[in-house]
Design a binder for these strands. Structure first.
Lengths: 343, 343
DNA sequence: TTCCGGTGTGGCATCGTTGCCACGTTGAGG
DNA sequence: CCTCAACGTGGCAACGATGCCACACCGGAA
């Protein structure tokens, strides 16, 4: 900056004003300064700026697993919006591990980020950010209603959509393959599954709610065991794309004819679901858009459009059901078990 | 920091030494300072540190499209390594657009990042970073041999592997669906395709090299037109996962029986390729690992393990061919065209 | 002529950290 | 008893950018 000032024959203050546009600067001086800056390749130091202004243009984004297309899409949506608003994204994977999440929180706090968008794992992380005065947006699931805004899919509505669809096809023994129900995402999906049953006057068979771990292989094994134990099951609803992948691979391995022998539906629409045959009926969360909305909510706080200290906002992104070939009419009673065993 | 100093009854200098471990600090003082810092939740300001130390722990990562699993895997690999080395990742999508890439370069320069890992679009961006004294690692493709290190897959070897595989199955009219050959990635794949033909003494029919744009829908259309124009084609090699997706969807739409009527192979192994039936024969680039290697190469420069001003390094990640169901014996001459038209 | 508001500019303190320097203090060795 | 090295500590000047303040100049109004 001193170099630019010297070359342009002005003071550092004037260079600052000329380049930033804050304060007076004569037209010719402004031009000269810009020219010199461009010539010698001067780029203002963002760290010095952040230090002086006590705010940075960095936003922390904390997700579980970038290799899962759900999180990748979410991050991509966030990044697109942030970038167009002049912010950039510090992306950290926490692998769903609270310890890593807490480390990332420390990092973000140290960087004095403008805000953090997080698919939260533990309340402590969100609380800690809040205490450090960092704006937080909880994405996809909400772990604390008091600390920071949230942008969520309507998991209950989505799960109800897909469950109702299955019920309408005549299915009465619908298995639910799910990994967790302690977060709002899993809890909502379970609630929607129940609500659809209740609305249809169909009892929920608790044995058909199969808990598994967040891992395609484990999900496949769990789904397989469930089918073995309960040959009367006619449909399976996998609560997210990873579980669906595991289940689908397992059914393929077993040579099941979908949807004749078994209907399968999923939550989360990811590209492979339209490529496989039959294509998978699923609930789209509009994940990319969800990400953009997260960024919007954060940017609204930063710009003061919403009071910095206003009450927490909750934005819902409505899900949509995409019916594809993997769900079909339930087979007439009595034929199902034999059908599957015959193969 | 002043607060901590006051509470602990020492000076700011001592707090700095006690917390950072650089320089002397008595054991009891060190403990007291740590205790106070933890109690009042003091986290050193990373911006002030970067300013003072003239270096940050941020690494810029510049990719084309986070929603493409190839780039997502790459970024995930990079992030994992960076994180374990105490760095973090500023992730920017440039959508394959040189303008956006240049903007990101400006941002990274302003942030005084420790280094940049980029899947480059234009030489200018890489040059510009180099001129600003930023360490650059070119990932997946190399656009400048002079500016910065590179970590690349061996595209020629990979393409040769898959083409040879098709030739060995008796295919002689193998279409190549490719989007660009101006980057080392595309050029290498084309070269490998030619090399395999040459090694087998099979002539390359230049009309079977179909150029398309980087877009699944366009790739599908191009592949369709090619098949219509050349019913004698018995195999198609798609030069990346997006093109393969477009082509596969198109063939599925046409109801082609794979691999009987047409064999299809791809470059890049992404999850859907194992889920569809037939599963797709493809070349794995070990993308996640590629990302880790990129980070390794950068970290080696930063740690001084490789001289800061040493010559550019080039690291190759060997690809591997995964043969799956989508490639089969070429049908006997004379049957192919009729087969396809019959449907 | 004096006063005043609008322009335009430079000086300076400041943001939070760090590392050099100078200054104790201590204990061992000559 | 003096010297000297090894510790430990505080003061201070940076790192680069910014914005307040003071000041200087100008034209117009009183």
């Amino acid at each position: 900056m001193q170099d630019v000032a010297r070359e342009a024959g002005v003071s550092a203050s004037t260079v600052s004003r000329a380049l930033s546009g804050n304060g007076y600067a004569a037209e010719d001086v402004r031009k000269r300064v810009h020219a010199v800056a461009a010539r010698i390749g001067y780029i203002p130091d963002a760290n010095a700026r952040s230090l002086r202004n006590r705010s940075s243009h960095s936003v922390g984004v904390l997700i579980s697993d970038l290799r899962n297309p759900f999180y990748a899409d979410l991050a991509a949506g966030v990044e697109q919006r942030l970038r167009s608003a002049g912010y950039h994204m510090i992306l950290v994977n926490d692998d769903g591990h609270a310890g890593e999440e807490m480390l990332a929180v420390q990092t973000f706090a140290a960087m004095r980020v403008a805000g953090v968008i997080v698919t939260p794992v533990s309340v402590e992380a969100v609380k800690s950010l809040h205490q450090h005065g960092v704006h937080v947006v909880q994405a996809d699931r909400r772990i604390s209603a008091r600390h920071g805004d949230a942008v969520l899919g309507d998991n209950e509505a989505g799960a109800e959509l897909v469950t109702r669809h299955l019920l309408q096809l005549g299915h009465r023994r619908i298995a639910l393959l799910i990994d967790e129900t302690k977060w709002t995402s899993g809890a909502g999906r379970l609630a929607g599954y129940r609500a659809a049953h209740a609305a249809a006057g169909a009892p929920v068979d608790e044995d058909l709610i199969a808990f598994t771990s967040f891992d395609a292989a484990a999900a496949g094994a769990t789904a397989g065991r469930l089918l073995d134990a309960r040959p009367d099951v006619t449909a399976l609803f996998a609560a997210n794309n990873v579980l669906a992948q595991g289940a689908f691979a397992e059914f393929q391995r077993r040579g099941l004819r979908l949807p004749d022998q078994l209907s399968i539906a999923a939550y989360d629409d990811v590209p492979w679901m339209s490529l496989v045959r039959p294509a998978i009926t699923t609930v789209s969360q509009h994940t990319f858009d969800l990400g953009r909305r997260c960024a919007d909510v954060l940017l609204a706080r930063l710009s003061g459009e919403y009071a910095e200290d206003g009450p927490p906002r909750l934005v819902r992104v409505e899900p949509a059901l995409f019916v594809r070939g993997s769900t079909g009419q339930a087979p007439p009673v009595g034929e199902r078990a034999n059908d599957r065993k015959a193969r």
